[in-house]
Amino acid sequence: MKEEKVDRRIKRTKTMMRDALMDLMDEMSFGEITAKDITSRADLNRATFYLHYNNVFELLDELENEVAAEFSQMLDKVEVKQGEDWEYPMIGQICSYIVENQRLCRCLLLNPRSGRFARKLTEIMKRKGMQVKEEMGLEFDPNKEEYIHQFIACGAMGMVKQWLLEGMPMSKEEMTDLAMVLIRPIFNILLP
């Protein structure tokens, strides 16, 4: 019982620090944020921060890795079946996640260090593309395959960043529909 209480306390402390980091990222550049800023905002002792992290970059990395893992799990749950509509539900799930986690996505994708996080997500999308290829028994020209994956993943990432930058003026349904209009021709070329 005592271990559960400690685990809950640690989880609560880390959540407070993450929330403080996101608050600060809304107000200033990530490069300006210090451990002192985070602990002041979270009303924690600075020693508490260093008990869990060596620096602010580690806190951001942990947050990025957790979101990347959630994103990967979400895509892994999508069943790809030839002749069935699997693309729209997958894109809809991604858009729903972004809507439900706007603040988090904005902090992770629109900060100057977002290139690293975007690459993590791009790799996850690329793995899903490889899975689709394998499950459907598709053959791509090996000289062009990486270009295809990068085009889809980077295009999708660009759309998401623009959507967040503009304050998400389109609903998740409108965004899903737009993504499908843009991606469907590519899928039609790739999926016989």
Score class of each variant (00 low, 15 high):
1 M>L: 10
1 M>K: 05
3 E>V: 11
3 E>I: 11
5 K>R: 15
7 D>Q: 05
7 D>W: 02
10 I>Q: 07
13 T>A: 07
13 T>N: 02
13 T>Y: 05
15 T>W: 00
15 T>S: 08
17 M>P: 07
17 M>T: 09
18 R>T: 13
22 M>K: 10
23 D>A: 06
24 L>Y: 08
26 D>N: 04
26 D>S: 04
27 E>D: 05
28 M>G: 11
29 S>I: 09
30 F>T: 05
31 G>H: 05
34 T>I: 07
35 A>E: 05
37 D>P: 05
38 I>P: 01
40 S>M: 14
40 S>Q: 14
42 A>K: 02
47 A>Y: 14
48 T>V: 13
49 F>Y: 04
49 F>S: 01
50 Y>L: 10
50 Y>E: 12
50 Y>G: 08
51 L>Q: 15
52 H>E: 11
53 Y>V: 08
58 E>K: 02
60 L>F: 06
60 L>G: 00
63 L>H: 09
63 L>W: 04
65 N>G: 07
68 A>S: 13
68 A>M: 10
69 A>G: 10
69 A>P: 02
70 E>H: 01
72 S>E: 15
73 Q>T: 11
76 D>H: 14
77 K>N: 14
79 E>N: 02
84 E>S: 04
85 D>V: 14
85 D>C: 12
86 W>D: 01
87 E>F: 04
87 E>L: 09
89 P>F: 01
92 G>M: 05
92 G>V: 03
94 I>W: 04
94 I>S: 03
95 C>D: 08
96 S>A: 07
96 S>F: 03
98 I>G: 00
99 V>L: 11
100 E>F: 00
101 N>E: 12
102 Q>T: 12
103 R>I: 02
107 C>M: 08
109 L>H: 03
109 L>D: 02
110 L>G: 05
113 R>S: 15
120 K>H: 12
121 L>D: 06
122 T>A: 15
122 T>W: 00
122 T>G: 13
123 E>H: 01
125 M>C: 15
126 K>N: 15
127 R>G: 02
127 R>P: 03
130 M>R: 05
132 V>N: 07
136 M>E: 12
142 P>K: 08
144 K>A: 15
145 E>G: 01
146 E>A: 10
146 E>Q: 09
147 Y>E: 12
147 Y>D: 15
149 H>G: 07
150 Q>P: 00
151 F>Q: 10
152 I>D: 12
152 I>G: 10
155 G>H: 03
159 M>Q: 09
166 E>P: 00
166 E>N: 03
167 G>V: 10
167 G>N: 09
167 G>A: 10
169 P>L: 10
170 M>A: 11
170 M>S: 11
171 S>K: 06
173 E>N: 01
176 T>D: 09
176 T>A: 06
177 D>G: 04
180 M>L: 15
183 I>P: 02
185 P>Q: 06
186 I>Y: 03
187 F>L: 08
189 I>N: 03
190 L>E: 07
190 L>H: 03
192 P>C: 11
